[in-house]
């Protein structure tokens, strides 16, 4: 059974149809790209998947459960984690606290333990401390653990955002333009990292990206959207040669 099964997803904003009849199936362990010109409705799809918007119609089945109408945090707890197009770290918190915050819903102690700093509190804090440091080490951020996250360099902030998403232990990771603002060398590093992420954390990955070298290099399947509609999908070679894709990006007759 597919990990994520989206059928006939449609999203209206007032009279504007942002997404229409969007379908996608993700198998466990796949890396799938979602591309299309600006305003095609990609980020809207992400926002619907993560419960920021409730779809006008359609079903979303994730891991065997229908998640339409659930709140964002419930969907995150069910195993979908995301990053944002414009970085949204907890900018005034330290780097390590960013990770710990994402661990919060699995924290074992109660509000009462938090007020009284009981033995359970100390045990819980010990566990999350160790967990967060280990995770930061994987992303080469352990040296910055106590820095304020807003002060990190851009590339490190991107890495931290991915690390933070992983701290919720997701099954599906969705990345909204992870290579935005990166130079080719950094983008290559990102390519490698995405493959490594999938294997290391046993993930399924859905990503929006504009940099074609990243999309073509990492995705096993690609879906192209334009004006809210899916215009084409398939393996990278197929997409590269599809005239409709060219047309969507460059206009007719290009």
């Amino acid at each position: 059974m597919a990990l994520l099964d989206v059928t006939h997803l449609t999203q209206f904003f007032g009279g504007l149809r942002a997404v229409s009849d969007f379908n996608i199936q993700l198998e466990h362990g796949e890396i799938v790209g979602l591309i299309g010109p600006n305003g095609a409705g990609k980020t809207t799809v992400f926002n619907v998947l993560t419960g920021v918007y409730t779809p006008t119609s359609g079903t979303i089945v994730f891991d065997g459960q229908n998640i339409v109408g659930r709140k964002t945090h419930q969907i995150a707890q069910a195993g979908i984690a995301r990053t944002f197009q414009t970085i949204r770290l907890f900018g005034k918190s330290s780097v390590i606290d960013n990770i710990k915050i994402a661990y919060h819903f699995r924290m074992s102690y109660s509000n009462t333990d938090a007020f009284l700093h009981t033995r359970k509190y100390w045990q819980g804090e010990q566990i999350v401390d160790d967990y967060a440091i280990d995770l930061l080490r994987l992303f080469h951020l352990e040296g910055h653990a106590d820095d304020i996250s807003g002060s990190l360099p851009y590339g490190a902030q991107r890495r931290l955002e991915i690390a933070r998403a992983l701290a919720t232990k997701p099954k599906l990771l969705i990345l909204d333009e992870p290579a935005a603002g990166m130079n080719p060398a950094e983008a290559d590093e990102l390519l490698e990292m995405i493959h490594w992420l999938r294997d290391k954390f046993d993930l399924t990955i859905l990503l929006i990206e504009h940099q074609m070298r990243v999309v073509m290099g990492v995705c096993e399947r690609i879906k192209v959207m334009d004006f809210g509609e899916t215009i084409c999908e398939g393996v990278p070679e197929h997409i590269r040669n599809d005239p409709r894709v060219c047309e969507a990006y460059l206009g007719k007759g290009a």
């Binding site: 993560t50 995150a76 984690a81 770290l89 919060h104």
Partner: peptide, 14 residues
């Protein structure tokens, strides 16, 4: 503090 810094991100982090 997460709610203060970015409510949407906090919500997305479960």
């Amino acid at each position: 503090k997460a709610v203060r810094d970015s409510e949407i991100a906090a919500e997305s982090m479960a």
